[in-house]
Simulated assay, not measured.
Amino acid sequence: MELWIPITIAAAFSQNLRSALQKHLKGKIGTTGATFIRFGFGFPLAVLYLAVILKLTSEAVPDVGMTFYWAAALGGLAQIFGTFLLVHLFSYRNFAVGTAYSKTEPVQAAMFGFILLGEQLTPLGIGAIVLGIIGVLFISFGKERPSSAVVLSTLIGKPALIGLASAAFFGASAAFYRTASLSVEAESFLLQAAFTLVCVTAFQTAVMGSWMTVSCPAELRAAIRNWRLSGLVGLAGIAGSIGWFTAMTLQQVAYVRALAQIELVFTLAASWMFFREKITPVELAGCILVSLGGVGIVIAAS
């Protein structure tokens, strides 16, 4: 099995845990606060991870050029906007469906990967991504019986548009991160990913922290008061980010983000176990399609 596959699955699990904790905290610290803690409380852990990688590889802090700086900055901003929209989306539908709307990301990641890196997909890869997207739409039907009206609402309703925008930002951030990571002059892919992660997280923490200090200091204080849960979000978030950055250094962003849709399996499980939300046959069918799409992605990328 190629290394990027288990790394991506582990990252998807960590991201699901982070999203669940963010949803729980959203009512206490607001949407902006719940977005900030992913970066602010994860940054010290990212620095620690980089220190460990530098020790293990015996390499020095790598050199970078202008490509790294603009790609890392744009990727960081795109991820902030994507996270904010995803957290805001939880206000409209249940936990499982809220996450599902953002899962059109692989298609958009493929587009940005082609534009920025010239990456192309095989026919099997494209088919697997489409299969996964169909599964996402099944899950996004929620508790309603599928019908033309429900499909229309799913595709053009306000939650859908927010989810699509969130996916676009996440897709762009993935392509920018791969661009930045591949530009780092280091022998180890682990160091390329870790260094990029630290720089991006530092930038995101500074941007959001400064903006919140001026515009919504109450949410910043609330995030600090809830430091225990905020710290757990930071830990889960940085664990997921380590996985994403490493996997996207090894493999095309479209394949990584498509396989990451396996997160929906974890999402539905969390929805059932922690939020007591029932899973319908339609959602289950969607989950199976997403899983089959993930298998197709693994085969196509091998």
Rank of each mutant, 00 (worst) to 15 (best):
T201F: 13
A149K: 14
A172T: 12
A172M: 15
G127C: 12
P146A: 11
S173N: 11
F195W: 04
V184P: 06
G132H: 03
A175F: 04
V150H: 10
I162S: 04
E105M: 15
E105I: 13
S147P: 04
S210L: 12
P106S: 10
F189E: 15
L117D: 11
A168E: 13
T99F: 01
Q120D: 10
A193T: 02
S102I: 05
A168I: 14
L117F: 09
Y177P: 01
L137M: 15
A168T: 15
F195N: 02
F189A: 14
S188R: 05
A160N: 06
I156M: 08
A174P: 09
F114R: 00
Q204L: 06
V198L: 06
S140G: 14
A128E: 11
T196F: 00
S188E: 10
V97L: 07
P106Q: 11
E105V: 14
A202D: 01
S183N: 07
L190V: 01
G98V: 05
L197K: 02
I129Q: 07
A194I: 01
K103I: 04
A174C: 09
G135E: 07
F195H: 02
E144C: 04
L161I: 13
A202E: 04
Q204H: 06
L155H: 03
G142M: 06
R178A: 03
S210T: 10
L152I: 03
E119V: 02
E187N: 05
L124N: 02
Y101C: 13
S147R: 07
F112D: 08
G163Q: 05
A96E: 12
L116Y: 12
A167W: 02
T104P: 01
G118I: 07
Q108F: 14
G127P: 13
L124H: 00
I133C: 12
K158T: 11
L155I: 09
L190F: 11
Q192R: 15
A194W: 01
I134Q: 13
A174S: 15
A149Y: 11
A110S: 13
L131W: 00
V200S: 03
Y101F: 15
A100L: 00
T179N: 10
L152H: 04
S140Y: 07
P106L: 07
A165K: 07
L116W: 04
T201C: 00
V136W: 06
F195Y: 12
A194M: 07
E185M: 09
